[in-house]
């Protein structure tokens, strides 16, 4: 019953129809919302008394690093669905997330490095969070190169799903172990987790920016999953009659 429902509702064809319809308004709304949140954060909030104005990078850095991890979780969720129910749509979505995840993770690392220059005095520190984010980036890149190295799409899909699951199990382990490791050498001068009790004036735009950035990235995911579906279902009759 459930399987049949899934197959009807979540066929690439009907997903593609819905996605084409909602994609542009979806993207537009969240781009505007994000620009609004950024403008609010960058121009309408007071200066942080420790870090000065450079703290404003938080409105770009925190959403990016949050979304980079959420994207991996979504990818893992899609892979589970693919492995259990053999739902093709889910692996299309999972595969189309990988390059976006890599880009977002790269941006998170980049903005963190830039932020580090004025606040820590160095652009890189071997602390737990940064190291595990770097590993996350490497995993995204590995996944992309994994899928592109197979000629047979079905094999590639299955390998992709398996490696995503291995990766998602791996992430908490790495996080935990890297946390553990870094405590021995040195404690990071400023950890991002316990920021000095954020002012509500800054908190509201921060939450808004996280939410709208997530929406924006999901819009791009819809876009790229449409591409993936077109690419993979080229020979189907419904694609030809578009």
């Amino acid at each position: 019953m459930l399987k049949k429902f899934f197959h009807q509702f979540a066929s690439p064809k009907s997903y593609f129809r819905i996605a084409t319809k909602i994609q542009n308004p979806f993207l537009l709304i969240f781009v505007l919302l994000y620009v609004f949140a950024l403008a609010w954060g960058l121009l309408f909030t007071p200066e942080d008394y420790i870090q000065g104005n450079s703290y404003r990078i938080i409105f770009m850095h925190v959403p990016a690093s949050f979304v980079s991890q959420i994207l991996f979780l979504i990818m893992a969720f899609c892979s589970v669905i693919f492995l259990v129910w053999r739902l093709k749509l889910s692996i299309y979505v999972a595969k189309s997330i990988a390059p976006i995840g890599a880009a977002v993770t790269f941006f998170a690392l980049f903005s963190g490095s830039i932020w580090g220059i004025p606040t820590w005095g160095t652009w890189w520190q071997w602390d737990a969070r940064i190291t595990s984010t770097l590993i996350l980036l490497i995993m995204y890149l590995g996944l992309i190169s994994l899928h592109s190295s197979f000629n047979n799409y079905e094999k590639a899909d299955r390998f992709f799903a398996i490696i995503v699951l291995a990766g998602v199990i791996n992430i908490p382990i790495i996080k935990k172990s890297v946390d553990w490791w870094s405590t021995l050498h040195q404690s990071a001068s400023i950890t991002l987790t316990d920021a000095p009790s954020i002012d509500p004036l800054m908190l509201a735009p921060l939450f808004l920016s996280i939410f709208s950035f997530f929406g924006l990235i999901m819009g791009i995911v819809i876009l790229s999953s449409r591409y993936e579906i077109l690419l993979r279902e080229q020979s189907k009759s419904w694609v030809k009659s578009l």
Binding site: N53, I57, I100, W115, P118, I220, S224, R226
Partner: peptide
């Protein structure tokens, strides 16, 4: 207050990344 260059570099990189992603696909 001297920090603008960092903030604006990040803003520019962010928007180029997003634009490249969207345009690419």
């Amino acid at each position: 207050g001297g920090h603008g260059i960092y903030v604006w570099i990040v803003v520019i990189v962010l928007f180029t990344t997003l634009l490249l992603l969207i345009l690419n696909f």
